[in-house]
């Protein structure tokens, strides 16, 4: 996937520059791009390390387990079948709590094991309604602090930094709710697998 992205960008730009004859700009942009990647990565290392460290403290003290408990009554309505049969509920709540706190490294493995557990007792290779809902939550999940984005903005000298949090919350909350509602409606109409 990444390889395709990269080569499409390269091929289309080289062909376009050959047609327009601005090869000097193209060569400049290759050199600048390569050195810029180092600046971008170095500028976000500090904040990513710091934030991950703080989150590790919260995780090891059991704060995430507590958040999971708070979320359980809400998630019961979002994943009705899993909570009724008590399948993978721990994984689902942990996955959602981790992604709210922005622990993206922890979210994916938790979601994978949740789906695996939901799939363990079935033979079909079709996704169930709850699996679809979980994957949509993975796509548009409410995130408390968009750390990487703020770090990138700060590193580029932005004056608007933490102020983006509230619009981000509104946007991801609306997307999340619309996603859940759509997933539940379509799931109900088409029946569960």
């Amino acid at each position: 996937m990444l390889g395709k992205c990269f080569s499409i960008f390269c091929i289309s730009s080289i062909i376009y520059s050959l047609i327009c004859g601005n090869l000097k700009d193209l060569c400049d942009s290759i050199l600048k791009g390569a050195s810029k990647s180092v600046t971008v990565v170095i500028s976000i290392i500090g904040f990513m390390a710091f934030w991950n460290g703080i989150m590790e403290v919260l995780k090891s003290s059991g704060a995430i387990a507590r958040l999971s408990k708070l979320l359980k009554p809400i998630l019961k309505h979002v994943f009705p079948k899993s909570f009724k049969e008590n399948v993978a509920t721990e994984e689902i709540t942990a996955c959602i709590s981790a992604s709210v706190l922005g622990l993206s490294n922890a979210t994916t493995p938790l979601a994978l094991s949740a789906i695996e557990k939901m799939n363990a007792t079935r033979k079909s290779n079709k996704a169930t309604n709850d699996m679809v809902t979980l994957s949509i939550l993975g796509c548009a999940c409410f995130n408390l602090i968009p750390t990487t984005i703020i770090a990138m903005r700060v590193s580029q000298g932005a004056s608007i930094t933490y102020e983006i949090i509230v619009p981000v919350w509104i946007c991801s909350f609306v997307c999340m709710v619309v996603g859940i509602i759509l997933s539940r409606i379509v799931g109900k109409i088409s029946g569960d697998c």
């Binding site: 960008f9 289309s12 730009s13 520059s17 700009d25 791009g33 810029k36 990647s37 990513m48």
Partner: peptide, 23 residues
């Protein structure tokens, strides 16, 4: 964050070519 560097290196070059070439 450091593990991001190789991918970022390739893709930032790709994207900056995309903008630099004018396409």
């Amino acid at each position: 964050a450091v593990k991001l560097l190789p991918t970022m290196c390739a893709l930032i070059v790709g994207v900056s070519m995309f903008t630099g070439s004018g396409i």
